[in-house]
Design a protein around this nucleic acid. Structure first.
Lengths: 247, 247
DNA sequence: AATGTAAGTCTTGCATACAAGAAATGAGTC
DNA sequence: GACTCATTTCTTGTATGCAAGACTTACATT
């Protein structure tokens, strides 16, 4: 979200000239205003959605044609994606979508769990009363959704709940890192909400986390969150094994 | 470090043609082979060393002249640095070296502490006997250096010690993130090793961390490391205040 | 004097062009 | 028939050029 403070009196020209600023709200990213940013966003989305399969080559010319731009902005976008780990650029040999090995996936899940648990611990220590109340309220709403069996809305709220916890840690650096990791793992987590009985199970795990945070139990929040994320990972693994058996 | 598996029988030409690969060792970065990578490294170094002051503008043409290249690779390097948070590129308004506010610095230190503590916890759980022994050995060597008052060698070993702990967590993702944060904070940590009495104090703090890791006490390692990093931060703050008083 | 306007200059953003390295192809050799 | 080597083709890496947006300066207005 971008908030712009505008002096209605000043015509557009002088507004810029005097440096009236577009203030960015804390913790948000600027909207993609330049071609490169749009490209990077689009390509990241295409990778995360699986359209660009892991291991596939990203030909600069093809991408340039696809997005109707020249190679220059494509290259800049590719470099940007490379530093996020989504793709790999091999000097003089082009870029490929990063192939995540099972071992690396395991590491990503573990790292994610640790970061989330850390956020939960900090949140338990430093959340404001308002934040705790809103967290509790969201959790209760998810209880209703779970009973209604609305997996889609539940997933949305689940995302908000976790984001709320990152924010509650009151540490932008940590929140950004955790969010980034979460995004990278999104493709692997998506499927599991359709698993039978996942919703109520998820809810009861959340219960422990939320309760610990609300009562300010740092160690408890850490443990409960680690447990929760580990279970999410476990059910992902089960899903994989199942797919191997019944492809 | 790069390890290349070579078939001695095949001449260089066919080796490439047949796709014999240069295997990158886990957890390391490729050497800068392309102009852009070299630029990015150089510029990052210049920023971290303070040559490019926080807030200063990075003019593409000037940079291109300085490194005797065209603007194209400079722009790509800038984009790369931007995603690491070292600089900020404002659309159509050029790049500036990120200005870290005291509040952000505090967040960086806290995040760093949490990550280091997490690494220590995981290391306590999953380090191999060899790794524990080497950690212990390095710690003892640092004891000697501290008694000799060799601050420079001590700082080197200190770096190695922490790196060893990241590696001991057996999680490349976490290790990379921690290392990156450590690098970003390096300019702010550098000065403090010259503080009076810092070496022996640092050593005794390490003692608690190492002991906990070696005996496999996960919770203890976490707590001790968090304590250690917090103290490092504290002494940095003291240093700042002192400089404010006697500039 | 302070603010608003307009022209001019400078910088960035993107496209195009060319050079150099890598893969692919095909002929020759053992 | 497998391997080597040379040649061709394709892709990436870097330089250059042009257009559009942002800053500067000088000027006009209240």
């Amino acid at each position: 979200m971008i908030v712009i403070f505008v002096c209605k009196q000043c015509p557009a020209r002088s507004r810029r000239a005097r440096g009236h600023m577009a203030l960015r709200v804390e913790g948000t990213k600027a909207l993609a205003e330049t071609t490169v940013d749009k490209l990077a966003d689009d390509m990241a989305e295409a990778i995360l959605s699986g359209e660009f399969a892991p291991g596939s080559r990203l030909d600069e010319q093809l991408l340039a044609q696809r997005y109707a731009v020249s190679r220059t902005p494509v290259r800049e976008a590719l470099r940007q994606l490379a530093t996020t780990g989504l793709i790999e650029v091999r000097p003089r040999r082009g870029a490929i979508v990063t192939q995540v090995t099972p071992a690396q996936l395991e590491e990503l899940f573990v790292a994610m769990g640790e970061l989330e648990a850390t956020c939960a611990r900090l949140a338990a220590m430093s959340m404001l009363p308002t934040e705790r109340r809103r967290l509790q309220a969201l959790h209760e709403r998810m209880g209703v959704l779970a009973r209604q069996g609305d997996a889609l809305a539940f997933a949305d709220c689940n995302h908000d709940l976790h984001t709320m916890i990152y924010a509650g840690a009151h540490n932008g650096v940590l929140a950004d890192m955790t969010q980034a990791l979460r995004r990278r793992l999104a493709p692997f987590r998506r499927a599991q909400f359709h698993l039978e009985g996942r919703l109520p199970r998820s809810l009861s795990e959340h219960d422990a986390v939320i309760a610990a945070i609300v009562r300010g139990d740092a160690a408890g929040a850490h443990t409960a969150m680690l447990h929760h994320v580990t279970l999410v990972e476990r059910s992902f693994e089960e899903l994989c094994e199942e797919q191997v058996r019944n492809p």
